[in-house]
Write a protein that binds this DNA or RNA. Structure first.
Lengths: 199, 199
DNA sequence: GTGTTTTCTAGACATCGTGTCAAAAACCAG
DNA sequence: CTGGTTTTTGACACGATGTCTAGAAAACAC
């Protein structure tokens, strides 16, 4: 068996970068082949199809992202944790120039556009998975924080609310491209959930 | 001058339906030509380009949507108004089978995928415009409601928060496809903004 | 070494997408 | 009826996806 000549992980990173810059549909396999130095045929051979390549690249990204998030959410007061959560989120989808937006949100809205079918199960699950795990991390933070100071009595609902706001921010960011505005909404949300003076 | 053989508005409606079903990139001009009975060439002649056609179709839709929303937000207690606002929003982007999602959100995340440029000014403005006007209507409702019962002291911020949540719901809907969940988040948001027992 | 197996390269191909253009057709003004 | 103008129509160029083929190249078993 001849071994791969390219670094599987490296190609996934490069492919994801292309998808992120140009959108799933906007990035062509020729673009990715050019950017990675791997022939188009080899990409099909190794990953199966464009959508499969995207999903694998996305899952690699999701793993990285969750790790970073976990670190961010690990310490400090509840308010501090939520603040850095919003910070990380906003910084992430405003990275690049022009800002590349939130990959999860973009992927979700872009995929599954074939007449009659929604997005296929694998794709939907990949996106839903990352969102759920982020929500779980936030919920953990809320519970850890609630140990010293209650805030609402329903951490699951609160976490879901916060996640919903971050997805909304990802959308507003593309419409208005005004970072201070986004941070204001984030701060407002934290106040709303914790109470204006809360911890 | 030879007159048009097709109904301009009708074609915009049909085109928008295609874009909504399949996404801006997913709907081809051939699809739209087939669905409307107008030749591809004529579409280019009348609307300029695919993106221009989408924007015109989108703006027609936005006008309709704002009218419906205005009616919905006109009467009842503040809580009732917000409830029907969320109802209308969720119903709208869960219409169709499978649900077609929120056209604004989908368009925003899908467009502007060319390397180096974000979405172009016209498009961004069209989306931002509808969102802003919806936010303004919600703010009006909040102020009208606040006349008999305060709720937060910053109606603009509250309206923006609510809009952010609706955009977030549009994203979550595609990831989870569970309407009851969405309605719970909506209800939670109203409680958060108005206070649990508020009007 | 010799073969086997797997991968990479390089290209052709069918099909579908966008966008442009020139010629034909339909209307209207005079 | 005639000329002018706009729409319609069909052909074209070009690039994307996805499949497939044939051969060269690299590791491994024996």
């Amino acid at each position: 068996m001849r071994p791969r000549e390219f670094d599987h992980d490296e190609v996934l990173r490069i492919a994801f970068d292309q998808f992120w810059r140009k959108g799933v549909r906007g990035a062509s396999l020729s673009d990715i082949a050019r950017a990675s130095g791997v022939q188009r045929g080899s990409l099909y051979n190794a990953f199966g199809s464009k959508e499969a390549l995207f999903l694998q690249a996305y899952e690699r990204y999701a793993g990285d992202y969750l790790l970073a998030l976990q670190k961010t959410l690990a310490t400090g007061s509840l308010r501090k944790r939520l603040t850095s959560f919003f910070d990380l989120t906003i910084t992430n989808f405003r990275s690049g120039s022009p800002p590349r937006g939130c990959p999860t949100t973009r992927g979700l809205m872009e995929l599954g556009a074939v007449e009659g079918e929604g997005l296929d199960e694998d794709a939907r699950e990949a996106f839903a998975n990352l969102i759920s795990r982020i929500a779980a991390l936030v919920q953990d933070a809320l519970e850890a924080g609630a140990a010293r100071g209650e805030f609402s009595g329903d951490p699951a609902a609160a976490a879901l609310h916060i996640i919903t706001v971050t997805r909304g921010l990802a959308v507003l960011e593309r419409a208005f491209d005004e970072e201070p505005q986004l941070r204001k909404i984030a701060a407002h949300t934290i106040d709303l959930v914790l109470g204006k003076g809360g911890r």
